[in-house]
Amino acid sequence: MLEFCEWLATTAWSIGLHESLYMYPLVETAHVLSIMLFVGTISFVDFRLLGWTFRDVPSSEVVSRIVPFTVAGFAICMVTGALLFYAIPVRTYLSIFFRIKMAVLVVAGINVWLIHRHLGRSPVEWDRWPRPPLRARLAGAVSLACWTTVIVTGRLIAYNWFDCDRQPQPDWVNWLAGCPLE
C-alpha cells in the first residue's frame, strides 16, 4: 500500500494538484462546503432518531426525504477527499489522523447500514413515536459521534505533530501511523 502511495505521488496529476496555486485550495474548499450538505443533513436525521426535533414527523419520512441529500453531499466529499489524498498520498497514508478518520468512517458506515436495514423495511412499530426506542436513539448518537470525529480528525490531518519524519514519537504512534522506521 505504501509503495502504491509512493507511486501515486510520482504521477504528473498528483504533483500538479499538490503544487497548484488554486486547484488544491479550491478542492479543499469544496470538501468543506460538501460537509455542510452531508453532515448538516445527516445531523437532523440523527436528531430525529434521538427524539430531539421533528417529533411529529415519522422517522422513516425524515430518513427517506433527507438522506438523499446526505448521500449527494457524501459523494462530493468522497470525490474531493480522494483528490486531496491523491495530491499528498504518502504523508496522508502515514497520518495517524487520517487512519483514525478512515476507521471511524467504517464504523459510521456499519451504523448507517444497521439503521437502513431496520428503517428500510415495512414501517417499524415506533415510526411515529416522538421519541424512538433506545436502539434507534443509540444509532443516532453513534452517528453524531462518528461524524464529529471524522470532521475533527479530518481537520487535524493538516497538522504535523505526529508525522513520521518527526521522531522520536511514542511507539504506539509509529505503529498506528505505520511509520517505516529503519
Binding site: 460537509i35 455542510m36 453532515v39 448538516g40 443533513t41 437532523f44
Partner: peptide
C-alpha cells in the same frame, strides 16, 4: 468551528 459550520449547513438547508 467546523462542527458549528456543519450544523449551520443543516439548519439552513432544512
Amino acid at each position: 468551528h467546523l462542527l458549528g459550520l456543519a450544523l449551520l449547513g443543516g439548519a439552513v438547508l432544512m
